[in-house]
């Protein structure tokens, strides 16, 4: 009987080995979604900051859709909806992992938009004016002054987003992508030892998240400009 069985530590170890086979897929989806999300976030933030008509409204719709619907539903929408569109253009079906990458990119893009925007807004107008006053062009001010300071503010926020994205990729099991959680499920089913295999996969996620957090903390320390702290920003609302 299932409920009479003892907890099997050796199964945890074996499950961990199986789970690690899914690690590349998990990391792939996370990395693609994070980088694509940064690009999306950057452009959406620009559209909002510079108040570009039409684009700005489109961004608002996109952001509220992603924030207002469950990630799992978004994943299903992409997985079942996108093939319908692709079929019309005569494209063959794509591998599931690609749908996962697209869905997670759109998801993280929405959240990273806020990160990029708030970090850039936190750079004081005084910093921009100072850059202009020494003769820099707009682009030079962005490159030399605004982005480095915004990045410093953004690091902890980026870390949070990266960990929640990393954990979120576990939902890809719902569209049969063989990432870590899927592997844990399948392996757990094979021995009817779900507790052991989910414990194994949870430990792997935990380890990864701790690594990300440590990395961000280290980066944050390195990026502090002097002992006075990371982002001593003045007045809010610098627009560039």
């Amino acid at each position: 009987m299932l409920q009479n069985r003892q907890f099997d530590v050796s199964f945890v170890v074996r499950a961990a080995g199986e789970v690690l086979k899914g690690l590349p897929v998990t990391l792939l989806i996370t990395a693609v979604a994070f980088l694509a999300g940064l690009v999306i976030g950057f452009f959406c933030a620009q559209a909002r900051r510079r108040r570009i008509p039409v684009l700005r409204q489109l961004v608002a719709v996109y952001l509220s859709f992603v924030r207002g619907t469950p990630l799992l539903v978004q994943l299903y929408l992409v997985y079942f909806g996108l093939p319908l569109l692709l079929r019309r253009t005569g494209q063959p079906d794509l591998p599931g992992v690609l749908y996962a990458c697209i869905a997670f990119s759109l998801y993280s893009g929405a959240y990273l938009t806020s990160v990029v925007q708030s970090s850039m807004d936190a750079v004081g107008i005084d910093q921009i004016e100072a850059g202009v006053s020494v003769g820099l062009s707009r682009m030079q001010v962005l490159r030399r002054v605004v982005w480095p300071q915004a990045f410093c503010t953004a690091v902890p926020l980026l870390g949070n987003n990266l960990t929640s994205l990393l954990k979120g990729t576990s939902l890809a099991f719902a569209i049969s992508v063989m990432e870590m959680t899927s592997r844990a499920t399948v392996y757990g089913a094979s021995g009817l030892r779900f507790a052991e295999s989910y414990l194994a996969v949870s430990l792997v996620y935990l380890l990864l998240c701790v690594l990300v957090e440590k990395g961000c903390a280290a980066a944050g320390n390195r990026l502090r400009f002097g002992r006075g702290g990371g982002s001593p920003h003045g007045i809010q609302g610098g627009k560039m």
């Binding site: 100072a130 006053s133 003769g135 002054v145 480095p148 001593p232």
Partner: peptide, 17 residues
């Protein structure tokens, strides 16, 4: 503008430099 220099009341030094 490049023919001028400006000194700000609140200094306006670049925090990241």
């Amino acid at each position: 503008r490049r023919k001028t220099g400006f000194v700000f009341q609140q200094y306006g030094l670049f925090h990241n430099m």
